Amino acid sequence: MRRGLVHVLAWSLATGAAVTLSWWGVHTVMAGTAYDPPRALPITAVGRAARDSAPAASSTSRPEPSRTASRTPSATPRPSATRSASPSGSAGRPPASPSASGRVKSYDTDGGRAVFDVGPADATLVSATPKAGWSMQVWKTESWIRVEYTAGADRVSVFCTWHDGPPHVEIGTY
């Protein structure tokens, strides 16, 4: 009986130590990622949601994004077919919400929605949301941001570049 109790106690201590070590490791890694709590956007018009089928911007925002790449790809392939993008909801509607550095612009694609705060000389990623069945990856540097949505063999990339002028967004499907 005593021997069984010692084994249960040893097993409990070892399991507790393993769980604690695993939690600490995951917590340390996740603390440095781009996942911040959601922040509310200001309400710009009463009844706007009733008139529009889709919101003009996402409800999450990063206060001060870092200018270093969170993930640096070994090679940054350009999509084979690109088109110049215009922000969704720009037909007959005012900009989503002015901010200190520019205007919030939303870009809808087959894979999801990317929202950028576009200023006169640079841009920041406000949010990126994949559609159901799609996964997402984000790359950031000092002169461009790339959001890639993937579902099986289908890929959609949203490039926002400002290295040779004001910010410009291209959407590529490949």
Rank of each mutant, 00 (worst) to 15 (best):
M1P: 00
R2N: 10
G4L: 07
G4S: 09
G4K: 05
L5C: 04
L5R: 05
L9C: 03
A10T: 03
W11A: 08
W11R: 12
T15A: 14
T15W: 04
A17F: 03
A17I: 01
A18W: 06
A18R: 12
V19K: 10
T20K: 09
L21K: 12
S22E: 07
W23C: 02
W24P: 00
W24R: 08
V26D: 09
T28D: 14
V29P: 02
V29H: 12
M30E: 09
A31V: 00
A34L: 06
Y35P: 00
Y35Q: 08
Y35C: 03
D36N: 11
P37G: 07
P38D: 04
P38I: 03
P38A: 07
R39Y: 08
L41N: 10
L41K: 11
T44S: 04
T44G: 04
G47N: 11
A50W: 13
D52A: 12
A54H: 10
A56D: 01
A57S: 03
E64F: 06
R67F: 06
R67P: 01
S70A: 14
S70R: 13
R71G: 01
T72K: 09
T72S: 08
P73S: 14
P73G: 02
A75Q: 12
P79I: 07
P79R: 10
S80F: 07
A81P: 00
T82R: 13
S84A: 12
S84Q: 07
S86V: 13
S86F: 07
S90W: 10
A91D: 10
A91V: 10
R93N: 11
A96M: 06
S97N: 04
S97H: 04
S97Q: 15
A100L: 15
A100S: 09
S101T: 04
S101M: 12
G102T: 01
R103H: 14
V104A: 11
S106L: 12
D108G: 02
T109M: 15
D110L: 13
D110K: 08
D110E: 14
G111I: 03
A114K: 09
F116A: 02
D117L: 08
D117E: 08
V118I: 08
V118A: 06
G119M: 06
G119S: 05
P120R: 07
P120Q: 10
A121P: 01
D122W: 11
A123E: 03
A123M: 05
T124W: 12
L125Q: 02
V126Q: 12
T129Y: 08
T129P: 00
A132V: 08
S135E: 07
S135Y: 09
M136L: 14
Q137V: 01
S143C: 06
W144N: 03
W144R: 12
W144I: 06
R146P: 00
V147Q: 05
A151K: 15
A151V: 02
A153R: 15
A153C: 04
D154V: 01
D154M: 11
R155M: 05
V158I: 10
T161V: 10
H163Q: 12
H163E: 15
G165Y: 15
P167H: 07
H168C: 09
G172V: 02
T173E: 14
